[in-house]
Simulated scan of single mutants.
Amino acid sequence: MTAELKQVSPAELVDLNGRVVCISGAASGIGRAQAELFLAAGASVVALDIDEEGLRRLNESLPTFGERLLCETVDLTVADQVAHAVASGKRAFGSIDTLCNTAGYLDGYSRSLDTSESVWDRVFEINVKGMYRLTNAVLPDMLERRSGVVVNMASIAAFQAGGGGAAYTSSKHAVVGFTRQLAYDYGRSGIRVNAVCPGMIETAMTREVLADPDSKLVKTLKRVPAGRLGRPDDIARVALFLCGPGADFIHGASIIVDGGLMVK
């Protein structure tokens, strides 16, 4: 049985008018770029981050969108805080129909023997379990409406070594697996789930490493066909498309956005 295909005009491909998007890691970097772009596309945004000051700066920088922006300070490793933030978003906007799991934690490119258990646990608590917590907090309402979109932030580290250390690389492999399983389990219930896999992106998380001219990351930059680092906006634009009606037939995909770094 074939579902009726809805015709979408070019202008509608990334139109998020009336949508409510929850974004973790929204205080800076890719998450902030997503918040700004999605608001401009007509969505209401529930911006989550552990960085309270960063959220305050985000809120103050977007006075035009005040009624469509809710900032909630939340630690993704604390289940009660995640539940409270989602409940606040639902009270403010009625529902959450789109989720961008963008928050992440880098391990300093440490090899396994140089990675303590506490660092390993911290990486997985944020990059994987935090994503699981937040996704499970919004899924029930999506399933009840039989409609929803989830975009998980993975990395090229999910496909090759060197994009992070042992813990980070392992966690991003897990994110891709989680994305595929979610798509498999809930696609027929109206939920679309995909992942974006950034390459070398200039954010606060990578700036310290990029400042070292002898770092492996800086040397790798010379191999990027695009000839530059990625910017948060480069990733936000892809996430915007995945959240919009133009991506209706994309399920369980991991979209690599790396300036061509992995073509060789």
Rank of each mutant, 00 (worst) to 15 (best):
S9H: 11
S9P: 00
E12V: 01
V14G: 04
L16F: 02
V20G: 04
G29I: 01
G31F: 05
A35F: 03
S44N: 08
A47K: 11
L48Q: 05
D51Q: 11
L58W: 10
S61A: 15
G66H: 13
R68F: 02
T73M: 13
V78M: 06
D80G: 07
V86L: 14
S88D: 12
K90C: 13
K90I: 15
D97H: 06
L99C: 07
N101F: 04
A103S: 10
Y105V: 07
Y105M: 14
S116W: 01
E117Q: 11
R122C: 01
V123R: 08
F124V: 03
R133T: 01
A137R: 02
D141I: 00
R145E: 13
R146Q: 15
G148C: 06
V149G: 09
N152R: 09
S155G: 09
S155M: 09
I156W: 06
A158W: 01
A166I: 05
A166V: 07
Y168N: 10
K172W: 08
H173W: 13
V176N: 07
R180M: 14
L182W: 07
V193F: 03
A195M: 08
G199K: 03
T203E: 09
E208P: 01
A211K: 12
D212W: 04
P213M: 03
S215L: 08
S215W: 02
G227E: 10
R231Y: 03
P232S: 06
D233F: 00
A236R: 04
V238C: 11
A247L: 06
V257E: 06
M262E: 02
